[in-house]
Design a protein around this nucleic acid. Structure first.
Lengths: 338, 338
DNA sequence: CTGAAAGCGCTTACAG
DNA sequence: CTGAAAGCGCTTACAG
């Protein structure tokens, strides 16, 4: 491969001049700049990434640490990864995607070796096992999720409390007084998925304030348990007139469960989900939902990380930032069925 | 950060000795090895990746080039990415995931800069726009998909012809003589998705040989078009007694379409899909299917790539290799309905 | 069994 | 506006 020395020789200048022509960090005469450009094109020169990393202590790579918890719904993850990758590229960064099951070790290894300029953690849990390694890292970091401890890095998450209130208020406004809610799988609580109890508790509290009855379930992970649970819920719903589903796997299976029971939303039952527009499209979900905005969360995590990596001045202190929820009406709610 | 020099000083040896202790490329006395290990642990030393890459011309990173064609079903992609990432890590490689919409430019940039030791292309099309850049790359490469031209790199794909025959034979054996088939979206043909016509043509040919009638459709990408197309197909199926669905988005929406029509498989209609076990689980698909084995494809692509990167001798010439299909019986086929 | 030194390909103060 | 040189942190022949 051509090196900067080859380019310099071909253009009849020194290596430093080529380097400065590349970076634009000092002015170069029109004439030599053109000669250099020509030589670069002719030789097909691209700077060696490792050499550059060694000289500058920068790689222009973001480490993306993905954690696949069991019992989590895989299709939901890609909605975060893709916008993050795209946003990183728009800012001139590449993405090293790390799925190592041993998250802390991988984080430490990648961080210490200087492979990346910044760390982006996905799916952060309440007492995330990766947090100590993150704290020890010298790179700036950013995350999607809700860490229990004060992070020292930026975190972005949906405002699940506000989402719960939004949904409960919406149903209350339509006249519903008794509803069923389906949370994520119970195991997600033990794993520290704060969104589980944040949503659930807020929903219960708001329902209490409004004098509504709410019957809470935890979801299932796999078929056929999902289908059976739906049958149980739909059979025993008694006087409940609305369904709030905060669970990807469960809501994805709801359309067939409803038709199997000869039920239609909103005529027989009002339904509100908690999923992204994209997820709804992929699974053909005809349900009104609180938008979970994975792309917004991912993109904002990238943006602040990029600014920290650039050493920008005057940035706010690292903190958890909540995205405001929005209700997307897909017509699956109405007045309570008689 | 601690450097190899710090470790050497702390252990009272030269830097080369530390380096050899790390690599094991020459024997070191028990005594000094222990001192070095201690110093490494104490200083929390991890070799600088850029320096190492510069010295060895190796990065231990695989570049994974993902291409998101419009009209493709995103959830299906993760099934390839995850096993690839896991397999890479098992072989000691990290993964740089590239989703740049300008595939050829990204491929060239990453390859030329020496950021990666090998290239892994996903979702390769018949005349893939990335192939010229791939040919020019100096790293070994491997791909999942079916490139039109002789590749110069290994490619892995499902044997779609065999899958089609397997399915048609299975239905013929059960007594079906008239079937409906649903292919991927028509646009995928223009995009060079060879699997579309390879499956379709083989199915038509086999059906012809067996004297079966087969009525072919192309699928839709988005709701509500998907639902409408299913209604059309199910309404106008006439004497067709079985459904062959080679389309992720369509098959994911089939359960609700069936129940909406009051149809059940296999009592009213036999159904065979073309999807992975994992996909079937995520979408709760109760259909017999030809397994598409994304994990096998991804893992095999990684394995051969790793061996080529290691410069292993006696490897077979690069070629397209087909994975044999297998029919997974989920009980959705039976004798033709009366 | 171990060390001194060259070299990988860049960037960037230092000089002019 | 440009060049010579030091330095980034490793690895690896070369020597002993």
């Amino acid at each position: 491969m051509a090196t900067i020395g080859d380019v310099a020789r071909a253009a009849g200048v020194s290596r430093s001049t080529v380097s400065y022509a590349l970076s634009g960090k000092r002015s170069i005469s029109e004439d030599t700049r053109l000669r250099i450009q020509e030589s670069i094109a002719q030789l097909g020169f691209t700077p060696h990434a490792g050499a550059r990393a060694l000289a500058t202590a920068q790689t222009r790579i973001i480490g993306l640490f993905v954690q696949f918890l069991e019992a989590e719904f895989p299709p939901a993850m890609l909605q975060y990864v893709l916008p993050i990758s795209d946003a990183a590229r728009e800012h001139g960064y590449d993405v090293l995607m790390v799925t190592d099951p041993d998250g802390p070790a991988a984080l430490q290894r990648i961080s210490q070796s200087g492979m990346v300029d910044g760390l982006l953690l996905l799916n952060v849990a309440h007492h995330d096992v990766r947090l100590p390694a993150l704290r020890a890292a010298r790179q700036p970091s950013s995350m999607v999720g809700f860490p229990g401890e004060a992070p020292g890095s930026d975190a972005f998450d949906l405002d699940f409390e506000a989402s719960a209130r939004l949904i409960v208020d919406h149903l209350h406004g339509l006249g519903h007084r008794s509803i069923v809610s389906v949370s994520p799988q119970r195991q997600m609580i033990e794993r520290g998925g704060a969104y589980v109890w944040r949503f659930r508790d807020a929903a219960l509290e708001r329902a209490g304030e409004l004098g509504m009855r709410i019957r809470p379930y935890y979801g299932e992970t796999q078929q056929p348990a999902i289908r059976e649970l739906w049958h149980e819920i739909l059979d025993q719903r008694a006087d409940a007139t609305a369904l709030v589903v905060h669970n990807d796997a469960m809501v994805a299976a709801l359309p067939s469960a409803l038709t199997a029971h000869g039920l239609a939303a909103p005529d027989d039952l009002s339904v509100v989900g908690m999923f992204s527009a994209e997820f709804g499209r992929e699974f053909s979900l005809p349900f009104t939902s609180a938008e979970t905005a994975p792309d917004t969360l991912g993109r904002r995590a990238v943006e602040i990380l990029v600014r920290r990596m650039a050493g920008e001045e005057g940035l706010p202190d690292p903190a958890v930032r909540f995205i405001e929820p929005a209700l997307v009406d897909r017509g699956s709610t109405g007045a309570p069925a008689a």
